[in-house]
C-alpha cells in the first residue's frame, strides 16, 4: 500500500500541485510533498486523513470552475486547496478530522462539529484563513494569513469542540 501511495498519492484526474505561483505557495507545496511522503510511510496516518484529503480533492474538482453552483459562485482557487490540504495534513495524528465543503465565495471550509453549540469552521481563501467557533456559551472568531503550520490557537479551538 505504501508503494502505491508513493507512486500515486492522489490519483485525481487533472490535479497537480504544480505550478504554484507564489513563494508561499512553493513553501506550502514543499510542505505538502513532505507530508505526502509521510502518508506513504504510515498506514495509521493514511487512513482517516486520506479519506478527508480525497474529499478535498473531489471538492476542488467540483468547485474550481466559475459558477460551479449553477449561479454566482466564485471558483475555488488552487492556493485555497493547497492551504486547506497543508492544514489538514499538519494536524496532530490523534485529532478528529473535519467535514469538507466550499462556499459561494470560493473558500474551502473545514468544519469540526459536535453539536449546534460546539462547532468550529475554518474557511481557506487564497491568502488568508478565517474561522468562527462556538463552544457552549463562548465563541471565538478571527483571521490569520495562510499559514505554514497550524497555529496553536486553532489547535486549541479544535480541541474545545470536543471537550
Amino acid at each position: 500500500m505504501s508503494a502505491t501511495l508513493a507512486a500515486h498519492p492522489y490519483p485525481h484526474a487533472g490535479y497537480s500541485l504544480s505550478p504554484l505561483v507564489s513563494a508561499e505557495g512553493v513553501w506550502l507545496g514543499e510542505r505538502l510533498e513532505s507530508v505526502r511522503r509521510l502518508l506513504a510511510e504510515s498506514h495509521a496516518l493514511a487512513g482517516h486523513v486520506r479519506d478527508v484529503f480525497d474529499q478535498l480533492l473531489d471538492l476542488y474538482d467540483e468547485c474550481s470552475l466559475p459558477e460551479w453552483d449553477g449561479a454566482d459562485a466564485v471558483p475555488v482557487a488552487r492556493e485555497s486547496l493547497n492551504a486547506a490540504g497543508c492544514f489538514l495534513l499538519s494536524l496532530p495524528r490523534d485529532f478528529p478530522m473535519p467535514e469538507v465543503t466550499a462556499d459561494a465565495q470560493g473558500e474551502i471550509h473545514l468544519e469540526w462539529y459536535a453539536s449546534p453549540r460546539r462547532i468550529l469552521t475554518i474557511s481557506f481563501g487564497a491568502t488568508a484563513l478565517h474561522y468562527a467557533g462556538r463552544f457552549g456559551t463562548s465563541t471565538t472568531r478571527g483571521s490569520e494569513p495562510v499559514a505554514v503550520r497550524v497555529s496553536e490557537p486553532l489547535l486549541y479551538h479544535i480541541r474545545r469542540v470536543f471537550e
Partner: peptide, 10 residues
C-alpha cells in the same frame, strides 16, 4: 469580515 460572516452563518 469573513470571520464575522462565518459566525452569523453559524
Amino acid at each position: 469580515e469573513k470571520d464575522l460572516q462565518l459566525e452569523l452563518a453559524h
